[in-house]
Design a protein around this nucleic acid. Sequence first.
DNA 1: ATATTTTTTATATAGATGTTTTAAACAAGA
DNA 2: TCTTGTTTAAAACATCTATATAAAAAATAT
Lengths: 219, 219
Amino acid sequence: MQRSKTANQILKAAEALFSEQGFSETTMRQITAAADVNLAAVNYHFGSKQGLIQAVSEKYLTPFCDYIDDAVTERLSSQSGVTVTSDELMEMVMRALLEVRHDNTHALSMFMRLLDLSYMKSQSVLREYMFLQHHVKLERFLELLRNDSSPMEDDEFFWRLHFLMGSMVFTLSNFHTLIAIEKSEFDKEVEIEKVLHRMIPVLTAGLQARSDKTFFCRL
Amino acid sequence: MQRSKTANQILKAAEALFSEQGFSETTMRQITAAADVNLAAVNYHFGSKQGLIQAVSEKYLTPFCDYIDDAVTERLSSQSGVTVTSDELMEMVMRALLEVRHDNTHALSMFMRLLDLSYMKSQSVLREYMFLQHHVKLERFLELLRNDSSPMEDDEFFWRLHFLMGSMVFTLSNFHTLIAIEKSEFDKEVEIEKVLHRMIPVLTAGLQARSDKTFFCRL
DNA sequence: ATATTTTTTATATAGATGTTTTAAACAAGA
DNA sequence: TCTTGTTTAAAACATCTATATAAAAAATAT
């Protein structure tokens, strides 16, 4: 979608502020001041603050899902074998994340914060807006992922997916803070690509772990 | 700490609202209305809204850390062998989470949301308040955990810990939403103990996964 | 019982919030 | 030139925000 210069300035400023402060903590006046546009511009272009939030979600979620779906298509066409390792699949996710980021440093943190927000009880509208539209694009990916996971029930797979999602959402939405802590504790500051790379074996291991059938009572 | 009846009503109401809506989305008027106390009561008993947030953090973080430390002590005394499996250690965490919950359904979600909040850039005061005090209590636990993890550098362990933390924080702070989704998709509603139990093998697998040394570029 | 302290109440304050309005300007196309 | 879509400016909107104050009430002490 082609957007006006003002609308893009608003989006850029909003992303940075959202990623640093969160959504409800960020005010329209902060956004328009940072974007150097008039206060009324947000309501003009996006209808409301919630409309702006939905706009940024659309801006990142669609390319993200498309990238993954494209990667799946390419992978399946290059080789007839239907087994794709979860390592490969996770790498697709990480590449997709880096891709949607573009040059914007704050984009990834905001994207993940948005995912987090969508799971809030009060944000069912946003959640349905985000998922019901893009869920289809990820179906093949999820099926491949499941094929290389430990055998389990549907709902167990559901929960494991959200365990992994939690790792990504938490780590990336709080990335700046974590980098700062790492800096102060280990005097080392690692780039985001490295962190994403480090997540891959952890996440795949989580998927392939044998589910423990023993009952949760060893008192 | 012995608390007045009013203060306890406030805490209980605040926990429920915080867990459902988040912190800045919850107003003093909502809290005091739900607690059926006067608006000024929060400022009287806790000084400010931030003071109330710190009070709930203190209320849950201290017992949580104590429980884990006690469990470590008991485990080390019962057997001279110094190797404790990460499965056992993770189970300690899950038990500690269930313990601090008490009868309050929302307590766990709020506790996890608090942990999430503490990693926000603007909440460095809360973060230091929460961690610098309780970090010591978890030292032995973390050392044992590291002993049963895949060999890795200090900063890699740091990141992996936060990957796992993310799983817990995300899953539990959004527990009510996830339960609702599970209900609608699988017509199944699993209790929190089961979910915590399902996390154990996933988390330990993440810690024991062999770190991938290959460079992140297979283009 | 009286004095003192603690707690609760009702009300006020000062400011921030998202949103709307009115006005005027600007650009581009028909 | 008339029209249409943008953008700015400034102000006002109604509502909500956390917090402060001061009097009333209750509890506790002497």
